[in-house]
């Protein structure tokens, strides 16, 4: 191991290392972040949800977007897999269907960063037990 010779070195080192810890730091305050949930049921995985998830994780990490990507179970939109749910703080969650890597990047750039609405939104007509209050 190389010695750390100055405060400057230490700070640089921290910047290189914090990358790996980001996901834990973010989980400390999930409420203030954009939460992206990728449906990872069997049908989702079969239609490429894992690739979409990888793309999303890399994208938000690269652009330092305050978002966290989690996995969810089947949302029931098997016809439209892969599906992702995006929850921007203060807004209602939005579900996108037929998401591939290109679409995922578009969602991040346009919907999450700029707040523009996109095609491919699935109107949600259900309530979850978490929503009842």
């Amino acid at each position: 191991m190389n010695k750390i010779k100055s405060l400057e070195d230490l700070r640089k080192m921290k910047q290189n290392l914090e990358h790996g810890m980001n996901i834990r730091e973010k989980s400390n305050e999930p409420e203030s972040l954009v939460q992206i949930r990728v449906a990872m049921a069997t049908c989702g995985i079969a239609s490429g949800a894992r690739t979409v998830m990888n793309t999303l994780v890399e994208k938000i990490e690269k652009e330092k977007i305050p978002a966290v990507v989690t996995q969810g179970g089947c949302m029931g939109y098997c016809y439209a897999e892969p599906t992702i749910e995006v929850r921007v703080p203060g807004k209602d969650p939005v579900v996108f269907g037929y998401v591939d890597s290109a679409k995922a990047i578009e969602i991040v750039e346009k919907y999450i960063v700029n707040g523009e609405l996109l095609d491919g939104i699935i109107p949600t007509n259900y309530k979850t037990i978490n929503d009842k209050n």
Partner: peptide
């Protein structure tokens, strides 16, 4: 991991 959380800073 300690340094990544501002350890020794």
């Amino acid at each position: 991991e300690y340094i990544a959380r501002d350890g020794y800073a």
